[in-house]
Structures are given as C-alpha cells and as structure tokens.
Simulated assay, not measured.
Amino acid sequence: MNRPSLYRLGILPLTAALLLGCSEKKPPEPVRPALYIVVQPQLADQLGRFAGNIEARYESTLGFRVPGRIVRRYYDVGAVVRKGDILANLDPTDQQNQLRSAQGDLAKVQAQLINAQATARRQQELFNRGVGAQAQLDTAQANLKTTAASMQQAVAAVNQARDQLSYCDLRADHDAVITQWKAEAGQVVSIGEEVVTLARPEIKEAVIDLPGPLAEALPKGIEFLVAGQLDPNVNTTAHIREIAPQADSATRTRRTRLTLDQTPPAFRLGSSVSVTVSSPIAEHFELPLTALQETDGHSRVWIIDPHAKTVSPHDVNVLRRDGQTVLLAGGLKGGDYVVSAGVNSLTSGQKVRLDKESSQ
C-alpha cells in the first residue's frame, strides 16, 4: 500500500505557513543611549557675588590730647591690647617744664599765704587790744582772701600741668585689637590728630561694596551667604545692618555692613570673604537649552523612568532663557532624570539606555 504524500496530509503547507510567519515578525526596536541630567530645584535667584572683609562693628581712632613728637610705639598692627595699656609716647620735655613752673608758682603762693595768714592774725590781735586800726585789719584780711584764691589757682595749675604730662602717654580706652597706625615714631602730631585705630573684637561683621542700583533694589529681609575665600566650607548667613546713604563718588558703590548670624573662628578681623547675594523665589529648575522641546506652542521635557528605562514627555513653563540654559517651572521635581540632548527624535514609551559615562 502506498504511503500518503506529505502534501495530501497537509503537513507541507502547514510547515510553509509557519516558516512564512516567522520571516514576517518585526525585529525588536533598538535601545538608544540617552544623555541625561539629574535635576535639582533652585530656591533662590543669584544676584551676584562680591568680595568683602571681616571688620569690627565698633572701631575708635585715638590721638594725643597734647601736641608733640612721638618717641615710641609699643605695639604693631594686629596686637591685642587691654584697657589702660600704653600704646605710644610723646617727648614729655615741654610738659615736664610746665609742671615744674606750676609747682614753683604753687610754692611761691603757699609762702605768700602763710605770710598773709600771720599778718591777718597779728592785726586781729592788735585790734582786739584796741591798739590796731580797723583799716589795717581790713587790708590784712582782704590780702588773706586774695592769697587764698591765688593758692587755689596755683593748685589747679599744678593739676592741669600734671594732666598734660600724663597725656604724653596714649592709652587704650578699652580691650581691643590694633588695626591701623596713622603716625610713626619721630613724627610731630597736633592735638587730636589721628594716630591709631582700635577695633573691638567681640562683635564682627562683613563689609562689602554693592553697586548703587542693586543696593537700592534689594528686597527687605534678603539673606546673604558669607564664605571664607581660602576655605569656602567655612560660611554663615548674614543680613543687612546698614547701607551707606550715599554712593562713593569714584566707584558709585555703596558700603554695606552685614550682621553675621554666626561668627566662625576662621573669620578673623581683616580676613577676606566672598559674599553671595540671593533672593528667595518659587521653586524652579535650570536646564540646558537642548533639553527643551517646543512643538505646537507647548514646551516640554522628556523624563526617564530609571526603572523601566523608558521616556515620557512632561509639559513645563519657561521662565527665562539665558544663553545656553533655560529656567523652567512646573512639571518637574528634584531627582528627575531629564534627557538633555536629542529630544526631537524621542517617542513616548521609547526604551533608552542610561550610560553613566554620557550623563551630564
């Protein structure tokens, strides 16, 4: 008996159909690499960065109360002094001569007073016995009063001369740090001429010069970030204490003094700091301009699902374009993976590869 052919049994057509179906199956869509960035929100608008210095809130400039020639300075700039310490001396020769002259006048008046007292006492005794004239008694008593007044004047002159001599020593009137000398040894100074500047170290503040328009436009309660120029990790926040009412005629800037919320030990008097001015604003995100896709009047970015490795579009609001960056609001949250390039060739749900070496 002849075996039935494969064609008659239908095996051959079925096999051909299966092979044809396999050949028509679509190949899997290729997974494309994606450049991406992990976005973080910005909560402040940077208005600028300025160089400044740490200074004492309270400073005083001292000078001698008498004229003369400086013969010695006892401390250098940066020295810590205590109240009553002698900072510098004047040549005391003139003041010593004035004191000796006043003391001589005092001794002369003292002798005159003793003689006037004796004369007044004798005239009183004679008048009491009835052998002295009233006129002579009155003259003696008047001379005694005049001499007593001269005695008081001579004592005051001696005290004044002694004070003038003590003024040849320039003393610190409070605990302080010497920040500047304005006169040198051998220099002749007049009364009240500035000689040395003292700063109280207990309260420090940051001092910067802001452009006039910026100083006038600063919002109330704005916060500053003050950081050390040598070590930016040493920083603190600060607020405005005082802005100069008038701009500097040469630089057109206004001196601004900032109260430090904290005072790190590294913020020594005279140290340089960097001050960043920022203004609080609503949450926004700064992205490269290449991450933005604009179609049909809509602005959007493509966000990557890091688990499924797929992309999806999200509408955003454009706040500002600045060169190669764009400022966005809405549609994003901190930590989102946003495609930063090639957004015009993406489709929703498309598979991508997150290549760390190509991430930004």
Results as ranks from 00 to 15, higher is better:
L6E: 03
L6D: 04
R8P: 00
L9T: 00
G10W: 00
G10C: 07
G10M: 00
I11E: 01
I11S: 05
L12A: 14
P13K: 06
P13R: 01
T15R: 09
T15E: 07
T15V: 15
A16W: 03
A17F: 07
L18R: 12
L19S: 13
L20H: 06
G21E: 01
C22R: 15
C22H: 14
S23H: 11
K25C: 13
K26T: 04
K26W: 04
K26D: 10
K26A: 14
P28T: 00
E29I: 09
E29A: 15
P30A: 12
P30T: 07
V31Y: 09
V31M: 12
P33V: 05
P33T: 09
P33F: 13
P33W: 08
A34G: 01
A34M: 02
L35F: 11
Y36G: 06
Y36R: 03
Y36A: 08
Q40F: 07
Q40S: 08
Q40P: 01
Q42N: 08
L43I: 02
D45G: 04
D45C: 01
Q46F: 07
Q46P: 05
Q46Y: 05
L47T: 04
G48Y: 11
R49Y: 04
R49D: 08
F50K: 00
F50G: 01
I54Y: 03
E55A: 13
A56E: 01
R57W: 04
Y58G: 10
Y58I: 13
E59M: 14
E59S: 13
T61V: 09
L62A: 05
V66D: 00
P67V: 06
P67W: 08
R69H: 05
R69K: 15
R69F: 03
R72S: 12
R73I: 14
D76H: 14
D76V: 14
D76G: 15
G78P: 09
A79L: 06
A79N: 09
V80G: 09
V81I: 06
V81Y: 07
V81A: 05
R82I: 04
D85E: 10
I86G: 06
L87R: 12
L87C: 00
N89Q: 11
N89R: 13
N89I: 01
T93P: 02
